[in-house]
Amino acid sequence: MDTTYCSVELYDITFRYPDGHLALHGINLTIHQGEKVALVGPNGAGKSTLLLHLNGIHTGEGQVSIDGLSVNHQNIGQVRAKVGLVFQSPDDQLFSPTVFDDVAYGPIYQGFSRDEVEARVTYALDAVGMQGYRQRSPHHLSVGEKKRIAIATVLSMHPSVLVLDEPTSGLDPRARRSLIELLRQLPQTLLVATHDLEMVRELLPRTVVMDQGEIVADGATQVILSDESVLYQHGLKA
């Protein structure tokens, strides 16, 4: 494995919310470049909180490294450009008046010239197959379209890691199918928090199970998802 290096490294992450609730406890996780990993677990297990650690929005105790870069105050901008975080609700992710403005947001903050911003928007919209939507407003889009645009908003930053929170929730079967196909084509390292075990089986060879702020299982998807006791114990099956 000397040709791949560590894309994401979490070392002993512990995080407590201001109200005292312990959300993460001693999380250790290493993801290699190009790996496609599922993060599963019951509601409230701490999945979303963990995702927010990957680009320094939450910072608990412990150490986060992205592409070998240890996350701290100085390099936070670099890290946020490397990690594309797609939130569960596209209504949170898409906060601009038009699709163009939203996809251009990251590149503008990265300080690129107008031409470069244009080029990146074109690239990102191409990647998600939504080129014709540049001037549309988010409120005129379907949920499936919004989810695609949400992915484009981080692809335009040319991230090396894509982190997605519940990408298939709220989608009808057809939109879900096309989103899975889209994710399959993306070359980036992928970490996907989800309840959609069907998608996990199909798309993500490695699965990490979280419960009550801790990682309780980590391994090949085939193995973990066929272990009934793990599934029942951590609320993945009922």
Partner: peptide, 22 residues
């Protein structure tokens, strides 16, 4: 909602400055 929007903005580089294309 505004908290989550804030996070989404931060994760794409927002730093308190309002920036736009010329």
């Amino acid at each position: 909602h505004s908290d989550r929007v804030y996070h989404a903005m931060l994760s794409r580089g927002y730093d308190g400055e309002v920036r736009t294309l010329p």
